Simulated scan of single mutants.
Amino acid sequence: MLTVDFNRFTLGPGMTVLDVGCGQGRHSFEALRRGADVTAFDFSQSDLDEVQTMFDAMAAEGQVPASGAYRTVRGDARAMPFDDASFERVIASEVLEHIVEDDAAIDEIVRVTKPGGLVAVTVPRYWPEKICWALSTPYHEVEGGHVRINKASELVGKLEKRGLTTLGTHHAHALHSPYWWLKCAVGVDNDTNPAVKAYHRMLVWDMMKAPALTRQAEKALNPVMGKSFVVYLQKQY
């Protein structure tokens, strides 16, 4: 399930891509399939081990173009072990809401991006996230959980203040908002609830089959209740 739209966040063969807070690697894998030189970066070594395993499997199955390359790097997004202007594309998807010192992470994202390079940042959208916080304390008060609810205007302001120019924005994953409201209402760890199980089955079916009905429904609903806010930017200097 991609949050960044790679039709808008364009990249070509051999381009250097950094996936900050890559998690389980969904955006790293897509960038690699498109022939990029991908660095998957995260604080969790267990997540990186899984990403490395998938990278290797993709290579073994011939899913990596000749121009593609990959590696995993562990570290802190607030002090990344990369030289200035190292990457042509930088992705930070659903990570800034986990970092107390998000200003430091944003500084690092801008620092490692090449002049003229593109940056994609995604965070949970303000009002769907606010409902989750209102329904459930455990949803956000856990180790490594969300430490803030981002307002789109404030986030964009922080990014532009550091020399990035906004190219466009959109919202994604409208069908996931009710799922998380439901989980927060019945208990975020209560995966045996019949309604939660049924909704989860529908989401898995949608992701696997991508039927026209749900794809068109989500497209129509994203501007209204998309769970994620996505902004694309360019570093000017």
Rank of each mutant, 00 (worst) to 15 (best):
L2G: 00
T3C: 07
V4H: 06
F9I: 10
T10L: 12
G12W: 04
P13C: 07
V17A: 00
L18S: 06
D19H: 13
V20Y: 10
V20W: 09
G21M: 06
C22K: 00
G25K: 09
S28Y: 10
S28K: 06
F29N: 02
R33Q: 01
R34F: 08
G35R: 06
D37E: 04
D42H: 02
D42N: 01
D42F: 02
F43Y: 15
S44T: 03
S44M: 07
D47M: 14
D47T: 11
L48D: 09
T53V: 14
A59C: 13
A60V: 04
E61T: 01
G62Y: 12
Q63I: 07
S67R: 03
S67T: 12
G68T: 06
A69S: 14
Y70D: 10
Y70R: 09
R71N: 05
T72K: 09
R74K: 12
G75L: 00
A77M: 09
P81R: 02
F82L: 02
F82P: 04
A85T: 05
S86K: 00
F87T: 03
F87C: 04
R89Q: 08
A92Y: 14
E94L: 03
E97F: 12
V100L: 09
E101K: 01
I106Y: 07
E108I: 06
E108F: 08
K114I: 07
G116I: 04
G116H: 02
G117H: 01
V119F: 04
A120I: 08
R125G: 03
W127I: 00
I131T: 06
C132I: 05
A134Y: 11
L135R: 08
T137I: 09
T137M: 08
T137Y: 11
P138C: 04
Y139M: 05
G145K: 05
A152W: 15
E154V: 14
L155E: 04
G157H: 09
K158E: 13
L159A: 01
L159S: 06
E160N: 11
L164A: 09
T165D: 13
T166V: 15
H170I: 15
H170W: 15
H171S: 12
A172C: 10
A172S: 13
A174K: 14
H176R: 10
H176C: 04
Y179V: 08
W180K: 06
G187P: 08
D191M: 12
N193I: 14
N193M: 13
K197A: 15
A198F: 03
Y199N: 02
R201S: 06
V204Q: 00
V204Y: 00
V204N: 00
W205S: 08
W205L: 05
D206P: 00
M207R: 01
K209Y: 05
A210V: 02
P211L: 01
A217L: 15
E218N: 05
L221M: 14
P223F: 08
P223C: 07
P223M: 09
G226T: 15
G226M: 12
K227P: 07
V230N: 06
Q236D: 14
Y237K: 12
Y237G: 15
Y237V: 14
